[in-house]
Design a binder for these strands. Structure first.
Lengths: 144, 144
DNA sequence: AATAGTTGATAGTAGATAGTATCAACTATC
DNA sequence: GATAGTTGATACTATCTACTATCAACTATT
């Protein structure tokens, strides 16, 4: 396996070490829908370099920008997934994620359409927040 | 003056009464950039029915949805004003609001362009949050 | 097979955040 | 012209939120 930034290689404790936070905080962020680590069949989590970067971004948003977790989730829920993956109109009509206002698509079972068989972890929608670049910049690219 | 919903007619205390909140909370929301009441020349604030509706929405977002004020402001900052008012590319390059990531345009002096001479209170960008309809729905309308 | 790490869950804490109280100077309205 | 309301400012507080500690059962690694 080549060393791409999505390669899940850190256990939860070594990731927590890198980030100087507790293992439990890592799991909290996941429960809240902010991160989506790789899971082995046994259920054990593994984190990639992208995941580390993403969590740094989350921490900055919470600690420096003073936005709470509900706020972050609501912002993530605004990412216009439909315009990023270009799913069809009929896909959208059936899609629970498209209709959701308070949860990002990757927190919702929405596999009855375009996203069938795709890993949310790998999806550009999920990764929009990965590098802490603002979602506004993504909107600027999409909206002329 | 006809009775349109933007007509500023309530003083701060009668508005606070209608909303069952303190006068001071009203001014806090303003300081935080969530509302933009009409001001008389003396500096006295006047609120319209739309303002009342907007504050109801803000309260719901804080108390029920549990999103903090910083979070709300960051969400408002995501409204794609440029695509709503259709300002020119060169306007955008000069516009401080276009570049801002953490404040909505109406909190920023951005009158050196398209918005020159326009009242932010009356602008569709500001009013996007007026009825508590989600900004996601606005994005859906703008993004095919 | 034994140690170290992981899982989910519940209970608890330090500190931040939304909101309040109080103030003197100024304005509206009767 | 007098009362009631408004302005901005600072100091204060109750409550919630992000985070931690501890637990027994399970898994990885040596």
């Amino acid at each position: 396996m080549p060393d791409n930034p999505n390669n899940p290689k850190y256990t939860i404790s070594s990731a927590a070490n890198l980030l100087q936070i507790s293992v439990h905080t890592m799991r909290m962020y996941e429960r809240e829908g902010l991160i989506l680590p790789h899971k082995k069949e046994s259920g054990q989590r593994l984190y990639s370099d992208m995941d580390i970067e993403r969590i740094k971004c989350i921490r900055h948003t919470i600690n420096e920008d003073k936005i709470n977790i509900e706020g972050i989730r609501r912002i993530l829920a605004l990412i216009p997934c439909w315009a990023i993956v270009h799913c069809s109109i009929s896909d959208r009509e059936r899609c629970v994620a498209f209709g959701s206002l308070n949860k990002p698509c990757w927190m919702i079972n929405h596999k009855n359409n375009f996203c069938e068989g795709r890993e949310c972890r790998e999806c550009e929608v999920y990764q929009s927040f990965g590098t802490c670049e603002s979602i506004k910049n993504k909107l600027k690219a999409l909206l002329p």
